[in-house]
């Protein structure tokens, strides 16, 4: 018996959906045997407001599982998410936007409303006001899905690893618990590590890392130990394809934390900055530390910088 599934996307880029497609040939048996997808805007034509556009409230079909990608940034996202929760027995948050806000939650650093105003006030744009006819109103900030509804399963990643998506979908279809990684990117990273003590400052990634592409990555010194900001230690594992190092490290590029924090309630900025400071690395050498929350700015972690009068320091 195939399980009924619905897919929705909220404040997202469709990378998660492409990741589903990137399951590749294994996708065919999955969608033809295990899953009975009854609603998925990117792939099929079921409409939320009725096939003839006559509905007034969002309709999502009843389903065993719901997969939602993207965070929640406007009233429409929220309505869709609430409808999903109502109709789905098991609700899966797919991708880091859904689990932690993702890149769009960077907007929380300046305030969603302020940011949107700014978008329509760029110098190249003809004078206008913020559109408000027939388009949904923005919320106060970008939320992760679990801030708004209960989420049963979290499958982060930007994009999520197709193999993990397949594992989760197969497991759910088979009625078992999926196997998901629980450690940090470093767990799958085979680079040479000798201690961080020699690094005193973090370098910007303006030159390539020191490594020989002809050699296996095991011969490359840990990028953090080369002085680059690599967020592997504070980022959930999962990006690595089977038997391979993490996807960025593999091409000599430091991790930027796209799977979100190792523990779901972790704080990548705090954990990373702390690890640096503890190792005697000048935390001020990090040019833009708030960027460390670039994938996990929801849950109130990334906030608008307040401007307040300077207090007398005693």
């Amino acid at each position: 018996m195939a399980v009924r599934a619905v897919l929705e996307w909220l404040n997202s880029c469709s990378g998660c959906e492409i990741a589903i497609l990137n399951i590749g040939e294994a996708l065919i048996p999955l969608v033809s045997e295990h899953l009975d997808i009854v609603h998925a805007p990117i792939l099929m034509d079921h409409k939320c407001l009725g096939q003839c556009g006559e509905g007034s409230e969002i309709e999502i079909p009843e389903a065993d599982i719901g997969i939602v990608s993207g965070g929640v940034a406007n009233t429409e996202h929220l309505e869709v998410l609430l409808a999903m929760r109502e109709k789905c027995r098991l609700l899966i948050a797919l991708g880091t936007c859904a689990t932690h806000g993702g890149i769009p939650a960077l907007m929380n650093g300046q305030g969603l409303g302020e940011g949107i105003k700014g978008v329509f006030a760029t110098s190249g744009t003809d004078p206008c006001s913020v559109p408000d006819v027939g388009v949904p109103a923005a919320l106060d900030r970008v939320y992760a899905c679990d801030e708004k509804v209960r989420i049963d399963l979290f499958l982060p990643g930007c994009p999520p690893n197709p193999a993990l998506i397949a594992e989760v979908l197969t497991a759910v279809a088979q009625g078992r618990d999926p196997v998901q990684p629980g450690k940090s990117v470093c767990d799958t990273c085979q680079v040479l590590r000798e201690g961080k003590g020699a690094v005193s400052k973090v370098r910007r990634f303006l030159v390539n890392a020191d490594y020989n592409a002809e050699e296996p990555v095991q011969r490359m010194r840990c990028l953090l130990e080369q002085g680059f900001m690599c967020m592997g230690p504070v980022t959930a594992a999962g990006c690595a394809a089977a038997g391979l190092p993490p996807s960025c490290i593999r091409v000599g590029v430091p991790c930027r934390g796209c799977f979100g924090p190792v523990r779901r309630d972790g704080n990548q900025m705090l954990d990373m900055m702390n690890a640096l400071a503890s190792n005697g690395i000048d935390f001020k050498s990090v040019v833009d530390r708030r960027s460390l929350l670039r994938f996990s700015g929801a849950h109130g972690l990334l906030r608008q910088i307040r401007t307040r009068p300077v207090r007398e320091r005693g």
Partner: peptide, 13 residues
């Protein structure tokens, strides 16, 4: 062992 993955941040500390 359930959480440590040998990132090595603690070694020099």
């Amino acid at each position: 062992p359930a959480f440590c993955d040998g990132c090595g941040l603690c070694i020099d500390v």
